[in-house]
Design a protein around this nucleic acid. Structure first.
Lengths: 344, 344
DNA sequence: ATTAGTAATGTCAACGTTGTCATTTTCATT
DNA sequence: AATGAAAATGACAACGTTGACATTACTAAT
């Protein structure tokens, strides 16, 4: 019964230093240490340096869990994307991160695998950490998502898509406008028998929206869609080659194809060239997203170039703005650009 | 002086429900609610359902900040990568996430921009959240990194590279072995005048390690490196074309090039074909990483195929294992595969 | 030297959980 | 019915921080 304190944690190894430890060592109060660590005002230079020295000596690291609990706010930002496999989300993420890091915020990553139910689960898990904001892809969610957001009332920005109805704000491009632009382009260039190729059963929904708009517009301009082929698996160059082959088997007279993504489009381009079909003379190709490699191919791939990095940047910036003014509502259409290339 | 409580938060809007609220509504103690929410043992079915009903009615979400503070442990995992722009880290991340999600863990993403000082800062910020583990790229860090890890004693797995000396465990491939394999391949195929192309001033260091091993081995097998060209900017297809052109300008008799990455290699491949040089007859090309698109090109790109997704998976699995047994030390060499393709 | 006003520091009580330990209930045995 | 053991529930005190408010130390004006 001699020893009475500090024998709780495992023998000897000093547990993580706390404010109290720093306070004791530097002979000031805990709150003063807290103020120094947070660069709060009203701290004398003398006290500050004394505290800093002690903190340094102990290797003190603030415990954000405690701080965030007390202040009911954190520097965490929930970032929810459907996937990180293909090239589009990493680039947006990159933009998001660059802005968040600047502002001292930390992204917590959630991946939904294009599964709406999972999205709800992921969001729930993230909200448990009281993030200061939420960034998520797309505007089409389970009702539970909106409820949760409302309850926590926390800023949210949805990115990718500007066609849908956002909970608060959205940043992206209009897939419908893009589809129309491509349809018009095909008509203008004199194509008569257009086809369409997609992947992964049109996940996410916005690719379906785009295709439907494409079909509608083609109808309007008098060159209705001849046929389409939607792969069941995620997009890839190889799948692009396969789906193209299948599509052309069924409808050999197709003279142009609009792809849901550049991976498939490139696969198709290479495949057609390999098998001796001339692009764009015999068949025109246009992809979607405008990935960098498409600019370097012997035949430059035509594509709808989406501003992915910028989208991330603007999304994050908008979130920061909303943190100050929650009620603001913004829909930011960043627009796209059609790179004509040589394949159409 | 009539009203006395609950008038703190903004008028009317109910703040987030807590355990206490659920407890009151269901007429049980807070700790019981806690137990139900955590699926702790020793809870009767009757109580469980009563609590669940109340929790549901209030839309209760546990506050992990409080829980984690109390238990001094979280389900957060710090994941620190140099970049998310190029194709390699997203794929690893993908693997990591798939395993973490399965285990109910959440990745917090930190990006260092290949900056060692920034890595320290990022790690510090993340440790403030008491993550249950840390995953970081590479084995070469500032001394402060190791100190922080030691102090928090927390499991860490370093991925990418298995040549260096890990803090605890590492998962990846040996860049040195890969470099040797490529050098040997070139010799074996009868190339006499090899060149090398890299990017971004050889960030990260492991690309430098690889090149040096490459040079050393070439020396050994009697076909010393003729020349190299390291771009100052990040890798891309376009840069690949430029650097190749520059290299060949200086040393037109180079008959094979080893690239630090596939983006540059593909850019080079396309560029050479565009400008009428035959690959591999006049010049052989081999890249690094084995990105998917390289398999689909008219001339299939030779490359060192790295198991990026698997690397992520094994890294995360290893972290989970270490969570149970902190002291375990493992170095897991996943190996690589050389895809010969048609460009060499 | 007194005063008033500001800057610097401190005390105390939360924030929402959960671990420990105490108490009560339940249930199979005798 | 009495007993004991196990299961179910609860009371209480932390976890490490910070906001509100109180106190003390300075500074400048009289």
């Amino acid at each position: 019964m001699t020893k009475d304190r500090a024998s709780l944690s495992s023998i000897d190894r000093p547990r993580r230093a706390t404010l109290r430890d720093v306070a004791r060592l530097s002979g000031v109060s805990e709150i003063s240490v807290s103020r120094v660590m947070r660069d709060a005002p009203s701290v004398s230079e003398r006290l500050r340096s004394r505290v800093l020295a002690a903190a340094n000596e102990l290797g003190y690291t603030p415990n954000r869990l405690a701080g965030a609990l007390k202040t009911a706010s954190s520097n965490l930002v929930a970032v929810i994307v459907p996937s990180i496999g293909n090239g589009v989300f990493p680039e947006v993420l990159n933009g998001i991160e660059s802005v968040l890091a600047e502002a001292g915020l930390q992204p917590v990553l959630g991946i939904t695998q294009y599964d709406k139910a999972r999205e709800v689960q992921v969001l729930r898990d993230m909200l448990a950490w009281s993030p200061m904001g939420v960034i998520m892809a797309g505007t089409d969610h389970e009702p539970a998502v909106r409820r949760m957001i409302d309850q926590h009332d926390i800023p949210v920005v949805e990115f990718m898509d500007v066609d849908g109805d956002p909970m608060q704000s959205s940043v992206g491009i209009s897939n419908i406008k893009a589809a129309i632009a491509v349809a018009d382009l095909l008509a203008e260039r004199g194509y008569k028998r257009p086809g369409y190729i997609g992947a992964w059963s049109e996940r996410p929904d916005r690719s379906r929206v785009r295709r439907e708009a494409f079909e509608r517009r083609l109808q309007e301009v008098g060159i209705p869609l001849v046929d389409k082929e939607i792969a069941l698996v995620p997009a890839s160059a190889e799948i692009g080659a396969q789906t193209t082959e299948r599509l052309l088997q069924r409808a050999p007279d197709i003279d142009a194809i609009f792809f849901a993504n550049d991976d498939q489009a490139l696969g198709a381009l290479f495949h057609l060239q390999r098998t001796g079909r001339r692009v764009p003379e015999e068949i025109g190709l246009i992809g979607f997203n405008g990935i960098e490699i498409g600019c370097a191919t012997p035949t430059i791939l035509a594509s709808v170039v989406t501003p992915r990095f910028q989208m991330g940047v603007e999304t994050a910036k908008l979130l920061l703005a909303k943190a100050d003014n929650l009620s603001s509502r913004t829909v930011m259409d960043l627009g796209f650009e059609i790179r004509l290339g040589e394949s159409i």
